[in-house]
């Protein structure tokens, strides 16, 4: 085992230890707290947006800016892939 592997093992153990402590001391699975915003969206998505699907009403109406950024990232990724392979495709 080289020195590089030893450093990797130690840092991985520290990371997993802290993550495991955090997961073991989290709130119980299936019991939510502070869900005021979600309860508002569940009860108002039908009369404010008119959509039966509350997830779609969040994606395209309440949090439209997130979807705009997501579409921009998808566009940038497509442009990046085409630029990376431009020489191979067009010659």
């Amino acid at each position: 085992m080289s020195k590089r592997d030893l450093v990797g093992v130690i840092s991985l153990l520290i990371l997993v230890g802290f993550l495991g402590l955090g997961a073991a001391s989290m709130r119980e699975f299936g019991v939510v707290d502070r869900a005021y915003m979600d309860d508002y969206i569940i009860s108002h998505s039908q009369d404010e947006v008119g959509a039966n699907n509350a997830v779609t009403s969040v994606v395209f109406d309440y949090r439209g800016f997130d979807t705009l950024g997501e579409a921009t990232i998808l566009f940038a990724a497509v442009v990046g892939v085409i630029v990376i392979f431009r020489r191979e495709v067009h010659e």
Partner: peptide, 22 residues
């Protein structure tokens, strides 16, 4: 159109700009 409150069969002609954005 506005769908009826609560559980309903679902009408296609609702939700404003959401179908167009989809």
């Amino acid at each position: 159109d506005i769908p009826p409150e609560g559980s309903n069969p679902g009408a296609l002609n609702t939700a404003g700009t959401l179908p167009l954005m989809n």
